[in-house]
């Protein structure tokens, strides 16, 4: 029993895990979070931009109403960036053990995946919502609610990632 505890302690305090140091795992996690969020946002914005460009060709006066819908899938990229920066703020990377670095990597995954997928679907939802605004500009408020609902899950993923950061031994 004592030997098992000893082994477990050695594993958690080892400088490397799976051939990577804690620093490397943490950077890997931060980069993954940003890549996921950034990629999703870029695709989501492309989708809504395609539709919005068509609407603006016919009715350039709608630019102001389209702007919030164009911007909303971009938030997931910001969450990815926040996560990446938080990794460097929360942890002293140069002294992070291999095991803790691995945990940081896993903690970054909710933002990486959920933000990527939600930004793409938010782009599709915002593109459909743009149709409501194309028909009646005063519907912008209602139109914004639809993509905002998709946003909820990106926010939850960021909250979970930050919560997990607080639980990782430094």
């Amino acid at each position: 029993m004592l030997a098992a505890v000893q082994v477990s302690k050695e594993i958690t305090q080892a400088a490397t895990w799976g051939g990577l140091t804690g620093f490397q795992w943490a950077i890997f996690g931060a980069a993954t979070a940003f890549i996921g969020g950034g990629m999703g946002s870029a695709i989501g914005i492309t989708y809504v931009s395609n539709v919005a460009s068509g609407i603006l060709v016919e009715d350039p006066d709608k630019f102001g109403s389209m702007l919030p819908l164009l911007a909303i899938p971009g938030t997931q990229g910001i969450y990815g960036l926040i996560t990446a920066i938080l990794v460097t703020i929360f942890f002293n990377l140069s002294e992070l053990s291999g095991f803790s670095g691995l945990l940081v990597f896993f903690a970054c995954l909710p933002v990486a995946f959920v933000c990527c997928v939600s930004a793409i679907y938010q782009g599709l939802t915002a593109a459909s919502a743009a149709g409501m605004v194309a028909r009646r500009t005063e519907e912008l408020g209602k139109a914004m609610v639809l993509p905002a609902l998709v946003e909820t899950y990106a926010v939850f993923s960021l909250i979970l990632t930050i919560y997990l950061f607080t639980r990782i031994p430094k």
Binding site: I43, T46, Y47, S49, N50, V51, A52, S53, G54, I55, L56, V57, E58, D59, I120, G123, L124, A127, A130, G131, A134, R135, R136
Partner: peptide
């Protein structure tokens, strides 16, 4: 398929959305 269709038809759909009104 949906993801591929948006870049292909998105602009056209946007223009049609205005005409629908």
């Amino acid at each position: 398929k949906t993801f591929r269709r948006v870049p292909k038809y998105g602009h056209a759909v946007g223009r049609v959305m205005v005409h629908e009104s």
